[in-house]
Simulated assay, not measured.
Amino acid sequence: MARGGVTKFLVQKARVAILARGENPSIDALRVELGNTGSKSTIHRYLKEIEAENAPAVGAPRTLSENLTELVAQLAGQLQQEARQSVAEDRAALSRERLDYQQQVRNAQAQIDPLKAAVHALEVQLQDAREQLQTVQEQKHQSDLANARLRQVGSDLETRLRERDAQILSLEEKHNHARLALDHFRQAAKEQREQERRQQESQVQQFGGELRQLQQSLIVRQDQLTQLNRDNERLLTEARLLRNEQEAKHQQLMRETLASEVLRQDKARIDGQRIELEERNQELADELRLSQQLLREQAIRMVALEEQVRHASQRETPEAAAPE
């Protein structure tokens, strides 16, 4: 370390330090100990003076104070050397610790950035899930309205179908009554013709006029029979039309029932999707809370690391400022 000049005191201090290490206090060793400063001639001159002062008088024994002074000087030099070595080791350890703290801070920052990106991605996914859930809820509402309309249409069709069935039943009863009347009339006419034929065979001449009257009556009855046959055909035609209309309504009801079933299946599928979206929404919310917890823990760790680095910097600054 450069100084304002080499003095006798500095040379003596360097000599004591070298002696304390058990080395020879030569001029070169002293100059190295002084930080490679000072001329060798100056160091040699001071060294001669110090050795002369420390040399005991001829025939005079060294006093206890002189021995103690030399021992204290040696111990002081050794303590200074150990202190410098301890300070150097502490500085090296502090430097390594500071590098470790800085690396930990960089690692924490490197972990925080992906976590922030992950949180942003989770927030985007959560927003998408909420929009999908809203869309599904709207679709479910529309599906419920459509189902309500279809149920109303089905109820109306069932009412009309019951009315048609009642009409068809009434027509069938009328047709049965007409057929029974026709059969009865035919049977009566047959019996009457047989009776008339038998009477005609025995009383042809006697009942000629009555035959004409009976023929006229038969014509009237045939007209009635023809009218009844026409009414019967008309009733049969109406019954066939009613059956065809009933069949068409039944097919329409089947189609609407099938459409209602398809809508019900779509509603069930939409409900399943809604449940899945709600579960996914819950998972995303849990992941978001976990990410936020991790961010808070990382932030706490980063603050602690910054506090340790700050304390380490404060410890290093006074030691760096202390004179050697």
Rank of each mutant, 00 (worst) to 15 (best):
I168E: 00
L169S: 11
L169C: 05
L169Y: 02
L169H: 10
S170A: 15
S170F: 04
S170M: 04
S170N: 09
L171M: 06
L171F: 07
E172N: 10
E172I: 02
E172C: 03
E173T: 07
E173N: 07
K174Y: 03
K174D: 06
K174N: 04
A178I: 09
A178D: 05
A178F: 12
R179L: 14
R179G: 09
L180P: 00
A181K: 10
A181M: 07
L182D: 09
L182V: 06
L182E: 11
D183H: 09
D183T: 08
D183W: 03
F185Q: 14
F185Y: 14
F185N: 13
R186P: 01
R186W: 01
R186V: 12
Q187W: 04
Q187N: 10
Q187P: 00
A189W: 14
A189N: 14
K190W: 07
E191Y: 09
E191H: 07
Q192G: 08
R193K: 14
R193V: 14
R193S: 15
E194G: 04
E194V: 12
Q195K: 13
Q195L: 14
E196D: 12
E196A: 15
E196C: 10
E196N: 09
E196W: 15
E196I: 13
R197N: 08
R197G: 03
R197I: 02
R198P: 00
Q200E: 04
Q200Y: 08
E201D: 01
E201K: 05
E201R: 05
S202A: 10
S202Q: 13
S202D: 06
Q203D: 09
Q203N: 07
Q203E: 08
V204L: 11
V204M: 13
V204C: 01
V204H: 12
Q205I: 05
Q206E: 06
Q206F: 09
F207K: 13
G208N: 00
G208F: 04
G209C: 02
E210R: 05
L211Y: 07
L211Q: 08
R212I: 00
R212M: 00
Q213P: 00
Q213C: 00
L214R: 12
L214I: 02
Q215H: 02
Q216A: 10
S217H: 10
L218C: 02
I219T: 10
V220H: 07
R221T: 03
R221E: 05
Q222P: 00
Q222Y: 01
D223V: 09
Q224A: 14
Q224L: 14
Q224K: 15
L225V: 06
T226D: 12
T226C: 02
Q227M: 03
L228I: 02
L228D: 05
N229L: 15
R230D: 14
N232L: 15
N232R: 13
E233W: 06
R234V: 06
L235W: 08
T237E: 13
E238I: 03
E238F: 07
E238S: 06
E238A: 11
E238H: 07
R240N: 04
L241P: 00
L241R: 14
R243Y: 03
R243D: 12
R243A: 10
R243V: 03
N244K: 15
N244I: 08
E245K: 14
E245V: 10
E245T: 11
Q246R: 11
Q246W: 08
E247C: 00
E247G: 01
A248R: 15
K249H: 04
H250D: 06
H250Q: 09
Q251H: 08
Q251C: 01
L253V: 01
L253G: 03
M254V: 05
